[in-house]
Design a protein around this nucleic acid. Structure first.
Length: 163
DNA sequence: GCCAACGTTGGC
DNA sequence: GCCAACGTTGGC
């Protein structure tokens, strides 16, 4: 008896386009980038415990003039230690982390498509997306789960002209 | 640059 | 284990 493959899950992952935009990710070798810099335990635990290779990713641009979903990607590797935690020169350096006991993890993320930018304002106008974590007031989590219904609705939005 | 919201730290 | 102070995030 074989174990059925777990259903595909979906995530929204925030990236500052100054650091890594969807264009940067698509231009990387294999269109794949290491998702460095996650320094929040809840987001780390999503990567560690819940993500599976092949999960769908909404590539979100944050802390920029036009925040919103800018493309699609997928989870492309198992977890690895985030090397920036060991680098004293890095803004993500963590003095309490060691190679023997890494605190922070990453996964490789493979960009698959740049889309038209779906702004926060546009997302907020879609009733079916009202419960999305990223739209909740005060939300700061850089990785949040997305339901299949939300994923499907957003894909549909992407293929129609801006409202 | 402001500031609301929230996570983390550390004294007790 | 509580909770005030502090730091960070991220939209505006």
């Amino acid at each position: 008896m074989t174990t059925p493959a777990p259903p595909r899950q979906y995530w929204l992952m925030k990236s500052e386009p100054d650091e890594c935009s969807i264009d940067d990710a698509l231009a990387a070798p294999g269109a794949t980038v290491p998702w460095t810099g996650v320094r929040n335990y809840q987001a780390r635990n999503f990567m560690r415990d819940a993500m599976r290779v092949g999960d769908g990713v909404l590539f979100y641009h944050s802390s920029c003039p036009e925040p919103g979903i800018a493309g699609l990607a997928e989870v492309a590797s198992d977890i690895e230690p985030d090397p920036t935690q060991f680098d004293p020169e890095s803004p993500y350096h963590d003095a309490k982390a060691s190679r023997d006991a890494p605190r922070w993890l990453l996964r490789q993320v493979k960009a698959t498509r740049k889309t038209r930018l779906i702004s926060l304002d546009e997302l907020r106008q879609v009733p079916e997306l009202a419960d999305m974590t990223v739209l909740k007031r005060g939300n700061r989590l850089s990785i949040t789960p997305v339901t299949e219904a939300e994923w499907t609705r957003i894909l549909r939005l992407m293929d129609q002209p801006a409202a």
